[in-house]
């Protein structure tokens, strides 16, 4: 690894100051992407700014009326051990326990998963399905943006020089709602998704009141499939509605062929995973899981 300096700012304003003064600086959360990439020479930096001592980035808070605020650098193991998360957002706890293995979960954050902007990032489809928003701080103050608008290309995000992701916000779960993320990997653990689907459904009188579907690993960025949710809204909760939404997901995917799978295979997986994730989310919304 090339030489870099290290700073551990204790406040948001100090961090923004450092990032603004050093355009080549990189933020360090759990380092499970960043340190691998620096070592492999895929990224370079002259200053690593440790995000974990900034209070706003390291806190989880939940309020039944306002929802969840998840600091960008909170590691996965703290997320799935958090009683509010397991109670109100079980699908988020599941995703946090799916990224890597025990050791990776001791370090890896959801903020890092999003900012790394890999198409395969496992948490991102679920964050999109759960109406997640990003709070961003920078030299010109702070702004909010929907998670589905955050990644712009592989490895690229909307963050401007001097900006960082402070936290992710999820609204409180609606009554009779359920969410689920499912991915396909060739092993049981520790692999990169060939494809993945994150969904949320809200049910009302035997119909979908609303639904959201997003996919991983099948486009240059995590992909929000708005039309799938729109097709479900108002439809009866049955096999035909779910199959129609799964077909929309399949058609929306723009996968590539690589060593993990062919484009055709990935499209097929999108339909299967969307259907299964919707079925699981419906069960959860009915209080059956």
């Amino acid at each position: 690894m090339k030489w870099f300096d290290y700073a551990a700012p204790a406040s948001l304003s100090e961090a923004v100051g450092l990032l603004t003064a050093h355009p080549g600086a990189r933020l360090l959360a759990g380092g499970t992407d960043l340190l691998v990439q620096l070592r492999a020479g895929r990224k370079e930096t002259d200053l690593v700014v440790d995000a974990k001592h900034i209070p706003e980035l390291n806190a989880i808070s939940y309020d039944a009326a306002r929802g969840l605020t998840l600091g960008a650098s909170v590691p996965c193991y703290r997320i799935y051990k958090d009683k509010n998360v397991t109670g109100a957002y079980p699908a988020l706890a599941e995703v946090a326990s799916l990224i890597g293995g025990t050791q990776i979960q001791g370090r890896a954050s959801i903020g890092g998963n999003l900012c790394n902007a890999a198409p395969s990032a496992d948490s991102v489809p679920l964050l999109i399905a759960l109406h997640g928003t990003c709070r961003i701080a920078g030299p010109r103050g702070s702004r909010e943006i929907a998670v589905e608008d955050f990644c712009t290309a592989p490895g690229r995000t909307v963050l401007q020089p001097g900006e960082l992701l402070v936290s992710l916000h999820l609204p409180p779960p609606a009554p009779h709602s359920g969410a689920r993320y499912l991915r396909f990997i060739p092993r049981n653990e520790m692999d990169i998704a060939v494809a993945g689907a994150g969904v949320e459904v809200v049910l009302e009188n035997g119909r979908f009141r609303s639904a959201r579907v997003a996919l991983s690993s099948v486009a240059p960025t995590p992909l929000y499939v708005r039309e799938a949710g729109e097709a479900l809204a108002g439809s009866p909760v049955d096999e035909a509605s779910i199959a129609a939404a799964a077909e929309i997901a399949r058609k929306s995917a723009k996968p590539i062929t690589d060593m993990r799978g062919t484009a055709d295979y990935r499209s097929h997986l999108c339909a299967v995973l969307t259907r299964r994730a919707l079925e699981a989310a419906v069960l959860r919304a009915r209080g059956k899981n």
């Binding site: 380092g31 070592r39 293995g101 025990t102 001791g106 370090r107």
Partner: peptide
């Protein structure tokens, strides 16, 4: 492996299990 996959470098850091190849020495402060 030196990239987080094999776990040979596992140590405990406060209350968590980590791969020490993906931790900077300075973070151990």
């Amino acid at each position: 492996c030196n990239d987080g996959n094999c776990g040979a470098c596992t140590v405990l850091m406060d209350d968590r299990v980590v791969t020490s190849c993906l931790v900077l020495g300075v973070e151990a402060q």
